[in-house]
Design a protein around this nucleic acid. Structure first.
Ligand SMILES: [Mn+2]
Ligand SMILES: [Mn+2]
Ligand SMILES: [Zn+2]
Ligand SMILES: [Zn+2]
Lengths: 138, 138
DNA sequence: TTCTACATTATAATAGTTCTAAACTGTTGA
DNA sequence: TCAACAGTTTAGAACTATTATAATGTAGAA
């Protein structure tokens, strides 16, 4: 617990009380430069490694949903049996290694604008996301 | 039950016994020109409308998995709480209307080749799929 | 300090999916 | 032709991720 004032401010300014559970989860999710792609189970494991006082599963779910709602996390539909979340909330794309179940960011700047030559009448485009599945090169 | 010999051959030639349950499911899934995007629940409802003799839920799951394994269906990761399947097994893309939970095909030819200016060492690209989220134009 | 709305928690409930094991059926080949 | 067998169907149980419930705890305001 070093420099948590940043998280405390962030939480408070978004109308979330800075409880010790939420601060701990912030530390785990956001204390790194790198994007973190995770399932709830991944996060639970990280928490139990990082702290002695446990956080209940319900709170982990509650917190992840609250953070998603506030825009601090994105949900990535990669797998139909578990939700994946992403600390990178900017518009970006992914490599996905199915054998390792590993998601890797592709910066939006690294994908040339995708041209789609068809439209749906009465609908407008909200986002265009590219998923690149990869496998081991032999 | 008109022209099922086609399905019977198809099933038999892929090593699946042409049972009446599988033939019925073939009729529902493949008797149309149009792509069919569905959840297991959608399919169960279609079956119960189309026939009097019911097919057990376990058989619906078994059959969909068998067809996927044989390459007659693709699974589409759009939603993290239910699996979506697609009768269009060619390489293609999708529009997705989140409010209606409606998936619409985009032909591969309608998307200009996607250029990705980054790679993962030791991995090669298996597929590139584009998901276009849409919303009502005001 | 007291009050209250918000938050955490253990646990129950739910829902989609998979497993189990018994009954059934398509196919083979004697 | 038909017994034998492997593959298939089935009801229901089990499993797993997620959400709901409702009691207890706590942050922040007054
Ligand atoms: Mn994981
Ligand atoms: Mn549906
Ligand atoms: Zn990402
Ligand atoms: Zn499709």
């Amino acid at each position: 617990m070093l420099n948590n004032s940043h998280y405390i401010d962030k939480l408070r300014s978004s109308g979330l009380r800075p409880t010790k559970q939420r601060i701990k989860i912030c530390e785990i999710l956001f204390n790194t430069e790198k994007t973190f792609h995770f399932t709830i189970n991944d996060l639970v494991k990280k928490i139990s490694k990082a702290t002695n006082d446990k956080i209940s599963l319900a709170t982990v779910y509650n917190t992840v949903h609250a953070f998603k709602k506030k825009g601090y996390l994105k949900e990535i539909p990669i797998n139909s049996d578990q939700s994946y979340f992403d600390t990178n909330t900017s518009h970006h794309h992914h490599f996905y290694d199915e054998s390792q179940k590993d998601l890797i960011d592709i910066d939006d700047a690294d994908v040339e604008p995708v041209k789609i030559n068809t439209r749906i009448p009465g609908k407008k485009i909200k986002s265009v996301e590219v998923l690149v599945k990869v496998e081991d090169a032999e």
